[in-house]
Amino acid sequence: MTEYKLVVVGAGGVGKSALTIQLIQNHFVDEYDPTIEDSYRKQVVIDGETCLLDILDTAGQEEYSAMRDQYMRTGEGFLCVFAINNTKSFEDIHHYREQIKRVKDSEDVPMVLVGNKCDLPSRTVDTKQAQDLARSYGIPFIETSAKTRQGVDDAFYTLVREIRKHKEKMSKDGKKKKKKSKTKCVIM
């Protein structure tokens, strides 16, 4: 069974824990209790493949930012979460993405942009803004509501699919490099 290491990042209060708990335990946590770091595991079937999701729910508070490099190193894919009623959390996505790329030393890291709290009427981040940002990053965008469960499975499952595509691409690139290195030079 394939294991996928997913990391949920975003500013404090955007609903990272609520999304994760909704996926794992099928219930909505409405009281806000700032996370330092929590880890969850769940076995699911995605596109006919049974897999184990190892999900790291991270601290959004700035005082825990020193811990970010460590979990970013171990993560295979990242859910970059903002709240649709919090423009600052949307603007912060850029910083999370840049930090992930720096730590992973790669421009090509599996990510999904997630606009959470889409059940709320007080939207300050337009869907088109988020779609445009995701398009500019070359990553999928999904709106979710941890409260109603809308888009929750889709967000995590899409990230797994992005990781699969990335692994497939990397193995193809690896095979191309191996083929090239088999060419021999004969000096007579």
Results as ranks from 00 to 15, higher is better:
2 T>Y: 14
4 Y>R: 12
6 L>C: 09
6 L>P: 02
6 L>S: 05
7 V>H: 15
8 V>K: 03
8 V>D: 02
10 G>D: 02
12 G>I: 04
12 G>E: 11
12 G>Q: 08
12 G>R: 04
14 V>G: 13
14 V>C: 07
15 G>I: 01
15 G>V: 00
15 G>R: 00
16 K>A: 01
18 A>H: 02
19 L>I: 13
19 L>R: 00
22 Q>R: 12
22 Q>G: 08
22 Q>P: 00
23 L>R: 14
23 L>Q: 15
24 I>N: 15
25 Q>V: 15
25 Q>A: 15
27 H>V: 11
29 V>E: 12
30 D>Y: 05
30 D>V: 08
30 D>K: 11
31 E>R: 02
31 E>G: 03
32 Y>A: 01
33 D>I: 02
34 P>N: 01
38 D>Q: 00
39 S>N: 02
39 S>C: 09
40 Y>V: 00
41 R>E: 01
41 R>T: 09
43 Q>V: 08
43 Q>A: 10
47 D>V: 03
47 D>R: 11
50 T>G: 08
52 L>Q: 14
52 L>V: 15
52 L>T: 15
52 L>D: 15
52 L>E: 15
52 L>I: 14
53 L>G: 07
54 D>C: 01
56 L>M: 14
58 T>I: 03
58 T>P: 00
60 G>C: 01
60 G>T: 01
61 Q>F: 04
61 Q>P: 07
61 Q>D: 13
63 E>Q: 08
65 S>K: 04
66 A>C: 12
67 M>I: 05
68 R>K: 12
69 D>I: 03
71 Y>M: 13
71 Y>F: 11
71 Y>S: 14
73 R>S: 13
73 R>T: 10
79 L>E: 00
81 V>P: 05
82 F>P: 00
87 T>P: 04
88 K>I: 04
91 E>L: 13
92 D>H: 03
93 I>R: 02
97 R>W: 15
98 E>V: 01
98 E>A: 03
98 E>T: 03
100 I>H: 14
103 V>N: 04
103 V>Q: 09
104 K>I: 13
108 D>T: 07
108 D>C: 08
110 P>I: 02
111 M>H: 02
111 M>D: 01
112 V>I: 07
113 L>Q: 06
114 V>H: 00
114 V>D: 00
114 V>L: 10
115 G>W: 10
115 G>M: 12
118 C>N: 11
119 D>Y: 08
121 P>K: 10
121 P>E: 13
124 T>I: 06
125 V>W: 08
126 D>H: 07
126 D>F: 05
126 D>K: 07
128 K>S: 06
129 Q>H: 05
130 A>L: 13
130 A>I: 14
130 A>N: 06
131 Q>F: 10
131 Q>S: 10
132 D>M: 05
133 L>S: 04
133 L>Q: 04
134 A>K: 02
136 S>Q: 14
137 Y>L: 11
139 I>Y: 12
139 I>R: 06
139 I>M: 04
140 P>V: 01
140 P>W: 00
141 F>Y: 15
145 S>D: 15
149 R>L: 07
150 Q>H: 03
152 V>K: 15
152 V>E: 13
152 V>W: 15
153 D>Q: 09
153 D>T: 07
153 D>R: 06
154 D>Y: 04
155 A>T: 11
157 Y>A: 10
158 T>W: 13
159 L>R: 01
159 L>K: 02
160 V>I: 10
163 I>N: 08
163 I>Y: 01
164 R>T: 15
165 K>Q: 04
165 K>P: 02
166 H>S: 08
166 H>W: 08
169 K>R: 08
169 K>E: 06
170 M>T: 04
170 M>Q: 09
171 S>R: 14
172 K>W: 07
172 K>V: 11
172 K>F: 08
176 K>R: 05
176 K>A: 14
177 K>D: 10
181 S>F: 12
182 K>L: 09
183 T>A: 08
183 T>S: 08
184 K>F: 01
184 K>G: 07
184 K>W: 01
184 K>N: 05
185 C>R: 13
185 C>Q: 15
185 C>T: 15
185 C>W: 04
186 V>P: 15
186 V>Y: 15
186 V>K: 04
188 M>I: 05
